[in-house]
Design a protein around this nucleic acid. Sequence first.
DNA 1: TGTACATCAGTGAACGCGCGTTCACTGATGTAC
DNA 2: TGTACATCAGTGAACGCGCGTTCACTGATGTAC
Lengths: 206, 206
Amino acid sequence: MGKKRGYHHGNLRQALVDAAIVLIEEKGPTGFTLTEAAKAAGVTPAAVYRHFAGREDLIAEAARQGFEVFADLMDHAYGKGQPSALAALEATGRAYLAFARKFPGHYVAMFESGISINRDPELSMVANRALGTMEKAAGEVMAALPVAQRPPARMVSAHIWALAHGVVELFGRGAPGTRSPFPPEDLLESGIGIYLRGLGLIAQDG
Amino acid sequence: MGKKRGYHHGNLRQALVDAAIVLIEEKGPTGFTLTEAAKAAGVTPAAVYRHFAGREDLIAEAARQGFEVFADLMDHAYGKGQPSALAALEATGRAYLAFARKFPGHYVAMFESGISINRDPELSMVANRALGTMEKAAGEVMAALPVAQRPPARMVSAHIWALAHGVVELFGRGAPGTRSPFPPEDLLESGIGIYLRGLGLIAQDG
DNA sequence: TGTACATCAGTGAACGCGCGTTCACTGATGTAC
DNA sequence: TGTACATCAGTGAACGCGCGTTCACTGATGTAC
């Protein structure tokens, strides 16, 4: 800490990832360039190759770190909602949106950069950890329903994921010309609320 | 029709748009290049400038044509569901997904290319026509509810739009590594069903 | 503590490439008389 | 019907640029004795 910035950078690897995240947020996943990331880190483009196999690899690392934070946030949200299964599920939904809003660069690297979640085991593991939390929360909520009208937990978690993702993409940022009719948080909150009522989990005249 | 392909192409403008749509689907919105589109149309890159102001303009035209088809599809779906307001709304939701699946190139140009819906009046008009249909359908459905528990139509249509868009983005194509747990159509159908039940529009034990 | 040396993390120049865009041009088409 | 000419829709060469990547190199750091 506090290293003099000389010939050796000291923490170039992470500095490149950080720069990439900012650039990805600003220019989009394909507008991002290795050269610019290197410049932002105060280094020659060639130096990048000391730490990453190439452009793709750098993006993948940005995504991996994003999933790490994401998974932690989901876990934390889940824990806060306990012991009420319903509150836990609602909290993971909110956490999804909060993550997308707070870490837009990571979010884009994860979901819009076109990198495959299966490109390496480390990436796929942490991604599954994050999405697994949501599925677990959904599963516990389902347990409250009579078996006959109990939809699969994977389906419910997919619904909530899709709704949250749609809200992020369409209304979450200053989308091109589509100014949001409602604050994204309210939109997701109300959407999930109506959905859960539809499952028979919330009183009809709550 | 049946023009000999000589020095003059005959219908280069549309040929370029068609090529762009295919390329955008294949390479993504930013991977798409003017040069490649020109080559696909059998023409020099410079020829593009006889018909479009530049790269952006070509993408915008692809998006505009997409919105045109999209709006027609929504109108048609809406009409088929009539006079039942509920059936009409469900049909527009299905039509959204069907459009995304059938015209992936258009869809990407419209929603992922970063072009603003407000870049020119023609584009914004046709976009509003499409989304207006969904909003109208939602409004009519809402009319069946007692005023006290009637959410705004814009909100309901935003919910359905977000859910449909999320399903498309996450499960609609061979997304990177995220193989869908369920067919997208089923996922959207069930999601909308549960949501509408939550609004009190479908019997709880239907 | 001082010196020799290995290792490491950068540099800087160069590469081949494809991009979007411009320009003066030319071949094909359409029209007036 | 035939000719002269204007208009139009292409060509092809050139531009400047920034990209990802490679390579031999060199300066800084860490370690053994």
